[in-house]
Every structure is written in structure tokens, then in C-alpha cells.
């Protein structure tokens, strides 16, 4: 399989296999008219299988939330066909409507239009917890 390398944009690499479409929709790439390549189940020495997304346009969304959606993801910034930066992602202290609470007893399951908000907790290992029921993400 051969896909043209992108000129100006970003490459999202080391996406957990199967998660590419989730990230595609989260970044609302379906609403943009730039070229996007989605590679699924690519062989990876480190991960076995991984997904990759290449976007041939600059993205101004806060990409830090990608680290929440998909731990281990890497972001490469491409300019004039060359990788100029490997972006380090930092976990945001709070995320709104990025992840959903999975606790069936949580108020988010019944309250109308309540945003799903998670806050980063844990001193040694960072964990996101639902602000309502404190369930782990």
C-alpha cells in the first residue's frame, strides 16, 4: 500500500489499532475538505498492530486531549514534507465531553445534556475520574 507523504500537516502515529475512526470523528475530520489518510492495522514492531492518521492541513484543535482518548499516541508536525516537530502531549487537568462515564449508576446516564467531565487525579499514576461519581475513565 502506498500513500503520498503529506506536505504541511500532522501525522498521528501509534494509535491503538481500531481507534482511528474514533479519533477521526473526535477531530471532526469528516467536516473538513483537506486530504486525510487513515491507515488501519499497520504492522508495528512496538505495538503489533497500530493505526495511523495523516492530515494534510494544519490543525488548531488542542491535541493534548488525544493523549486522553488514546494513551501512547504520537503527534508529528510536518512542514514542507519534513517532520519538524514531535509534539509532546501533556494530559489536561480536566476534559469535557471527551470521554464518557461508563458507570451505569452515574447521574450522567439520566440528567439531560449534562456534560461528561473528567478530572486528572492520582499522585503516582495519573487517572481520570468522573467528577460526579468518581469512577475511573
Amino acid at each position: 500500500m502506498h500513500i503520498d507523504e503529506i506536505q504541511n500537516g500532522i501525522v498521528l502515529d501509534h494509535i491503538t489499532a481500531g481507534k482511528a475512526m474514533e479519533i477521526y470523528h473526535f477531530l471532526e475530520l469528516d467536516g473538513r475538505d483537506c486530504p486525510v489518510a487513515i491507515l488501519q492495522n499497520v504492522g508495528s514492531r512496538k505495538m503489533g498492530r497500530k493505526d495511523i492518521i495523516k492530515i494534510d492541513a494544519p490543525i488548531d484543535t488542542d491535541l493534548n486531549v488525544l493523549a486522553v482518548l488514546c494513551p501512547g499516541i504520537t503527534v508529528n508536525v510536518i512542514r514542507d514534507g519534513v517532520r519538524v516537530e514531535k509534539k509532546a502531549l501533556t494530559l489536561p487537568p480536566e476534559v469535557k465531553d471527551v470521554i464518557k462515564c461508563k458507570n451505569p449508576r452515574c447521574i450522567t446516564t439520566t440528567e439531560q445534556e449534562l456534560p461528561h467531565i473528567f478530572r486528572l487525579t492520582g499522585a503516582k499514576t495519573p487517572v481520570y475520574r468522573c467528577i460526579y461519581c468518581e469512577t475511573k475513565a
Binding site: 452515574c106 447521574i107 440528567e111 468522573c130 460526579y132 468518581e134 469512577t135
Partner: peptide, 8 residues
């Protein structure tokens, strides 16, 4: 009965 209801 729902967890987090008083916070809301």
C-alpha cells in the same frame, strides 16, 4: 439513587 446527583 444516582451517584453525583447532589453535585449536579
Amino acid at each position: 439513587p444516582k451517584e453525583g446527583a447532589p453535585l449536579v
